[in-house]
Amino acid sequence: MKNLLKNKTSLLKSLILLFIASFHTACDEQTVYHSFQSLPTEGWQRNDTLFFNVSVADSATLYNVSVEVRNRNNYPYQNLPLLIYYDSPEALNIKRDTLELRLADNAGIWLGDGWGGLYQSTLPAGFVRIGKAGEYRFKIIHLLPDEVLPGINDVGIKLKR
């Protein structure tokens, strides 16, 4: 009975965190795009690429890109190396970058915001100048050798003016 109550409390705290994050995003006029993709409970497959399709109407703006990760307590590492790149409407690979997201300190304490076993971390991924309005596809893959990477709950991308 104690475990059931603990699981319900953990789930409630996680839902509150997601609601608060969604509310803050909805109130931000500078955010052009913000989306998460949930990963399977068993883990992020080595060959799974996450795709984010972004419609960009303003090609004269410099966009600030950030990657957001929600991890659980069972993530086995301190860092998460990622490859992020995006394609233009002409299907040309425009920008490609390797990022290192630090999720825990040397003592194993999670650095992200959160509670109840779910933590959210944000990593600035630089600035992008879109050359032409249209549909852009951002792609993210993890660079760890694990065939199945446990403990990553969601991966998101945010574009701000």
Rank of each mutant, 00 (worst) to 15 (best):
Leu82Phe: 04
Pro76Ala: 02
Ile84Tyr: 01
Glu100Tyr: 05
Thr122Val: 15
Val56Gly: 08
Ser55Tyr: 09
Gly108Trp: 10
Ser121Leu: 09
Asn64Leu: 11
Asn64Phe: 00
Ser121Tyr: 06
Gly108Leu: 01
Phe127Gly: 09
Leu123Cys: 08
Asn64Pro: 02
Arg102Lys: 15
Tyr119Val: 01
Ala107Asn: 15
Leu123Ser: 09
Phe51Glu: 14
Thr98Lys: 13
Tyr75Lys: 07
Val67Asn: 04
Asp113Ile: 06
Ala125Thr: 06
Ser59Arg: 07
Gly126Ala: 12
Thr98Glu: 13
Leu101Ile: 11
Gly114Cys: 08
Tyr77Cys: 04
Ser55Arg: 14
Trp110His: 15
Pro89Met: 04
Ser121Met: 12
Tyr119Cys: 06
Pro81Met: 08
Val65Lys: 02
Ser88Arg: 06
Asp87Glu: 15
Asn79Pro: 02
Ser59Gly: 14
Thr98Ala: 03
Leu99Gln: 11
Thr122Ala: 12
Leu92Ser: 10
Leu123Tyr: 12
Tyr119Ile: 01
Arg72Glu: 14
Arg96Ser: 14
Leu101Trp: 00
Gly116Ala: 12
Leu101His: 01
Leu62Thr: 13
Leu111Trp: 13
Tyr63Met: 04
Ser66Trp: 03
Gly112Phe: 10
Asn53Asp: 13
Ser121Gly: 12
Ile109Asp: 14
Leu92Phe: 11
Asn64Ile: 01
Ala104Asp: 10
Ser55Glu: 12
Tyr63Ser: 04
Asn53Leu: 03
Ala57Thr: 15
Glu90Cys: 07
Asp87Thr: 07
Ala125Asn: 03
Arg96Tyr: 04
Leu99Glu: 01
Tyr77Arg: 12
Val54Glu: 02
Asp113Arg: 05
Gly108Met: 10
Val69Gly: 10
Phe127Trp: 09
Glu100Thr: 08
Leu111Ile: 08
Asn73Trp: 02
Tyr75Gln: 13
Ser121Asp: 12
Val128Gly: 01
Pro76Ile: 02
Arg96Lys: 15
Arg70Asp: 11
Val56Asn: 11
Pro89Trp: 02
Ala107Gln: 15
Asn71Pro: 07
Asn73Gln: 13
Arg72Tyr: 02
Ile84Leu: 15
Ile109His: 15
Leu50Ile: 14
Arg102Ala: 06
Ala107Phe: 08
Glu100Ala: 05
Ala107Thr: 15
Glu68Val: 01
Pro81Ile: 00
Asp97Gly: 01
Asn74Met: 09
Asp87Ala: 03
Ser55Trp: 03
Val128Arg: 07
Leu50Lys: 02
Tyr119Phe: 15
Tyr86Ser: 11
Tyr119His: 15
Asp87Trp: 09
Ile94Glu: 08
Ile84Trp: 04
Thr122Tyr: 03
Asp58Lys: 08
Asn74Lys: 10
Asn71Trp: 00
Asn71Tyr: 06
Gly117Val: 09
Val128Phe: 05
Arg96Glu: 13
Ile84Thr: 13
Ala60Val: 05
Gly108Asn: 14
Gly114Phe: 01
Ala57Gly: 10
Tyr75Trp: 05
Asn106Trp: 07
Ala60Thr: 10
Glu90Arg: 12
Ser88Tyr: 05
Ala91Cys: 05
Arg102Phe: 01
